[in-house]
């Protein structure tokens, strides 16, 4: 029996605007990601890697083509249905951390669980557990402003983790960090991938960071140019 790929994109396009001024951010993408893979999407700015990420993360809908998640077509879902998909299957990590200011690390991490409808005690347990995984349980009651960039990003990773997603989407997660912190973050991601079998799709333009992935996708002008396995991860 054929195993169903976790993420399967076929002929995905994403066109902004209409007619003469139309921009083809994605120009026919075919990509298959199996459960438990760690892939890095690379490319120069304007190559469409962020758009690809948004489509995979169900923040955006493709203009044409098919997107199957666990074998289910999700490219044509309504906004609310996509929100539910994000809530239950996906976790996001952004370049700018995107934590709620003036809210404790704990509150930031438990936020997705509020939308999942979990009770207070359950949420707190899960949030503490997620913070422990990223090594920040002792900072649970600090506000983001009291944390370093690397710590903030780890809180963001804990937030992405807390809902037990199948796929984590990381958009330039080390973009704002120095090398030492970047390595720490990548090690956290790699550990999650290896020990928890979490599928990770990461966008980056840093070669060093892409080394942590098992697979690298090179994008240029809205197309996939290369798709290769990396040495280090293999």
């Amino acid at each position: 029996m054929n195993e169903i790929p976790q993420i399967e994109l076929t002929g995905i396009t994403r066109v902004y605007g209409k007619g003469e001024i139309a921009v083809r951010a994605l120009d026919g993408i075919d990509l298959t990601v199996a459960a438990g893979e760690f892939i890095a999407i690379m490319g120069p700015s304007g190559s469409g890697k962020s758009t690809a990420m948004n489509v995979i993360g169900c923040l955006d809908s493709p203009t044409s083509g098919h997107y199957r998640f666990n074998g289910v077509e999700v490219g044509r879902l309504s906004q609310d249905q996509r929100a539910l998909l994000r809530r239950h299957y996906l976790g996001f990590v952004f370049q700018g951390y995107n934590l709620l200011p003036r809210a404790s690390a704990l509150h930031n991490v438990e936020l997705p669980l509020i939308y999942k409808g979990l009770g207070r005690a359950e949420r707190h347990n899960a949030a503490h557990e997620a913070l422990r995984k990223v090594g920040l349980d002792n900072r649970a009651h600090h506000d983001p402003s009291e944390l370093s960039g690397g710590q903030q990003q780890r809180v963001a990773i804990a937030r992405a983790l807390v809902g037990s997603p199948q796929v984590m989407l990381a958009d330039e997660p080390t973009g704002n960090l120095d090398t030492k912190r970047s390595i720490e973050i990548m090690e956290v991601l790699q550990d999650l991938n290896r020990s928890d079998g979490l599928t990770i799709v990461m966008v980056t333009h840093e070669e060093d960071m892409a080394e942590y992935a098992q697979r690298r996708i090179w994008m240029v002008d809205g197309r996939i140019e290369r798709d290769e396995r990396t040495r280090k991860a293999a």
Partner: peptide, 11 residues
Amino acid sequence: GIRLAIGAQAR
């Protein structure tokens, strides 16, 4: 934006 990304519905 953050709330929407982590799965909040419009309503």
